[in-house]
Design a binder for these strands. Structure first.
Lengths: 220, 220
DNA sequence: CGTACGGTTCTTGTATGCAAGAAACGAACC
DNA sequence: GGTTCGTTTCTTGCATACAAGAACCGTACG
C-alpha cells in the first residue's frame, strides 16, 4: 500500500500545490521529508524536469514551472488529437468493459447535470476521459496522455470550467454524442465528436482561465 | 561543441546500436567511458528508462529494451495522430519557411525517386516528417514526437522500408498530396493526407519487419 | 542616498564507500 | 546424473562528504 514510488510522491506534491509555481523545491527538505538521502531525490527531480513540471537551474535550485498561456494552448491541441485517437480506437474495439463504464458514466452525469452538482460532474468528466483513453487499449497512448495531463495540471482547470452551468449542459450533450458513436462502432464519428468536445472544453477552459500565469520567460 | 549532455550521449549510444536490445548497460562502464562517476550516469539511465529505451531491473542491471510488435503498432498509431495534427497545424499557418523547405524537399525527393537512390530518399523522408512537425509551431507536440521517435528507433525501420521501389514511388506521391493541401491552407485535407501517408508507411514498415523481435515478456 | 564590493550562506553537482540483493558457479548429496 | 544448497561475484541502491558556484547581505565608498 505504501509501495508508491518516490517519483509519484514528489510529483503529487508538486501537482497538489504543496509547492506553488515559481517556488523552490529544495532537495534537502524533500530528502528529510521522505526519510531518504538527496541522491534518490535528485533522480526524481531530474525526471520531473523531463516531464516538464519543474525547471532545474544549475547550481541554483529546482523550481516549479508554471506553464505559459501558449504552452497550455499547445497542450490542449495535443489533448484533442490524443483523445480523438483514443475515441476512434475504442470505437473499433466493439463491446468492451470500458463501453459499459461510459454508459454508466452518462447516467450518472445526466443526474449530476440535472442536480446542478458541478463538483460531482467534474469528477465524472475526469473519469469519462480517462476511461476513453484507457479503453483505446493502447498503452503508449496512455503513457503519453498521462504525461500530457500532468503538464496541464488538469484538475484545477476542469473544476473551474464546469462551474458554468451552460458549459456543463453542453459538455454533457457532447459526451452523449461521443458514446453514441462508440456504441455504433463508428470510429470516424467517434473521433470527430471527441475532438469537437475536447476543443469546446479547451475553449471554455482558456476563457475561464483569463489571465493569470502568462509569461515565465525568466530564461529569455 | 562538446556541450552535449550526458543524457544525449548515452541515448545515442543505445539508439546507435552500441548496445543491442537485451544487452546489459553497466553503470560502471559508462562512467569510465565518459570519465565521470556512477552518480550522473545513474540519473541518465533513470531518464532513459522513463523514455522507454531501457529497462532497469532492480539490483540486477539496466537492459536495452526491445519493443514488442504490439508496442510498435501502438507507436505507429500515435505517430499517425501526431503527424496528422502537425500537418493540419502547419496548413493553418500559411506561408512559413517550413513550407518552402517542403517544396524543396519534394524536388529533391522526385529526383532521388527517379534515380532509384533509396538511401538518399530515406534521408529526405526523415527530413520531410521532421519539417512538418517542426512547422506545426507547437513545441509540446515536437517534444512528444521526439520521445515517440526515440522509442521507435525510427531510422533503421525506414531505411529498410523504402528499399522497396514500389513503396518509394507511392510514398513520394503521398508527400506531394500532403504538401498540396498545406500549400492550399486546407488543414482538414492536410491532416487527412498525412494520416493516410503515415498509415501506409506504417503498414509497409510492419510488413517489411516481418518477425524479428516479438515478445520480450521477460517480466512474465 | 545610491552603488559597488567582499564575505557568508545556501543551493546544487559529483565522487566515493558501503550495503543489499540477485545471479552464477561449484560442490555435496540423493 | 540430476538437484539442491552454500558461497562467491557482480550488479545496483543509497548515504555521505566535499567541492563549486550563485545569491544574498552588510558594509564601505562615492
Amino acid at each position: 500500500m505504501t509501495d508508491v514510488s518516490l517519483l509519484d510522491r514528489v510529483r503529487d506534491l508538486v501537482l497538489g500545490g504543496e509547492y506553488e509555481p515559481g517556488d523552490l523545491v529544495p532537495e534537502q527538505t524533500l530528502a528529510e521529508q521522505f526519510g531518504v538521502s538527496r541522491t534518490p531525490v535528485r533522480e526524481v527531480l531530474k525526471q520531473l524536469q523531463n516531464e516538464g513540471l519543474v525547471e532545474i537551474r544549475p547550481r541554483v535550485g529546482t523550481f516549479v514551472r508554471h506553464p505559459s498561456q501558449r504552452e497550455i494552448v499547445e497542450l490542449f491541441q495535443l489533448k484533442e488529437a490524443l483523445e480523438g485517437l483514443a475515441a476512434g480506437l475504442l470505437a473499433q474495439r466493439g463491446a468492451v468493459p470500458e463501453l459499459q463504464s461510459l454508459e454508466e458514466n452518462l447516467v450518472a452525469s445526466d443526474r449530476a447535470a440535472l442536480d446542478g452538482d458541478s463538483q460531482r460532474y467534474a469528477e465524472l468528466v475526469h473519469e469519462f476521459h480517462w476511461t476513453i483513453v484507457r479503453g483505446s487499449d493502447n498503452q503508449k497512448l496512455l503513457e503519453h496522455y498521462q504525461r500530457l495531463m500532468n503538464q496541464l495540471a488538469y484538475h484545477r482547470i476542469v473544476t473551474r470550467t464546469v462551474a458554468d452551468p451552460a458549459r456543463l449542459i453542453n459538455s454533457n450533450s457532447e459526451h452523449h454524442k461521443v458514446v453514441d458513436a462508440i456504441r455504433n462502432k463508428n470510429a470516424v464519428n467517434a473521433e470527430f465528436s471527441m475532438r469537437q468536445h475536447v476543443n469546446a472544453s479547451s475553449q471554455a477552459a482558456l476563457v475561464s482561465r483569463g489571465d493569470e500565469g502568462s509569461s515565465d520567460d525568466v530564461t529569455g
